[in-house]
C-alpha cells in the first residue's frame, strides 16, 4: 500500500501514477471525495453514484487510453472518462484474455 490509510479520506490510490481511486464508502453524485497522494489531501466531486469498493476517475481519460491502478495498466478506456465518473466494466475493458478478439488486428 502506498501509505497508511488516514482517517478522513473517502478513497484510496495505490500509486501516484494511478488514474483511479477506490472509494471506501458509497458515494452519491455531487459528493466531495477526498483521497491522499504524495502532495497531501486532494478533493474531487463525484458525478456518478459509486458503490463501495468501486473506482472513481481522478484523471481525464480519452477513448483508448491505458487506465492505471497499482501504478500498472489494468485496462483501456472504451469511452472518454471525466474526473469524478464511475470507472468500471461499462467504460473500461481488459486487454488480456480477449478470446473474442483473438486473431483480429489491433489487439
Amino acid at each position: 500500500m502506498k501509505q497508511q490509510i488516514a482517517d478522513g479520506v473517502d478513497a484510496l490510490i495505490m500509486d501516484n501514477r494511478d488514474h483511479v481511486a477506490t472509494v471506501l464508502r458509497e458515494i452519491m453524485s455531487g459528493d466531495t471525495v477526498r483521497y491522499r497522494d504524495d502532495h497531501g489531501i486532494r478533493e474531487i466531486t463525484a458525478i456518478d453514484l459509486i458503490p463501495f469498493g468501486h473506482k472513481i476517475a481522478i484523471e481525464v481519460l480519452d477513448t483508448g487510453d491505458d487506465v492505471c491502478k497499482y501504478g500498472e495498466i489494468i485496462g483501456r478506456a472504451c469511452f472518454a472518462i471525466l474526473v469524478g465518473q464511475h470507472v468500471h466494466v461499462h467504460n473500461i475493458e481488459g486487454i488480456r484474455g480477449r478470446g473474442d478478439r483473438a486473431g483480429k488486428a489491433g489487439t
Partner: peptide, 13 residues
C-alpha cells in the same frame, strides 16, 4: 465485478 473489479489485469495486480 459487483465487488468493483473491472478486468483480469486489475484482479491479478
Amino acid at each position: 465485478i459487483e465487488g468493483g473489479l473491472s478486468t483480469i489485469e486489475e484482479k491479478s495486480l
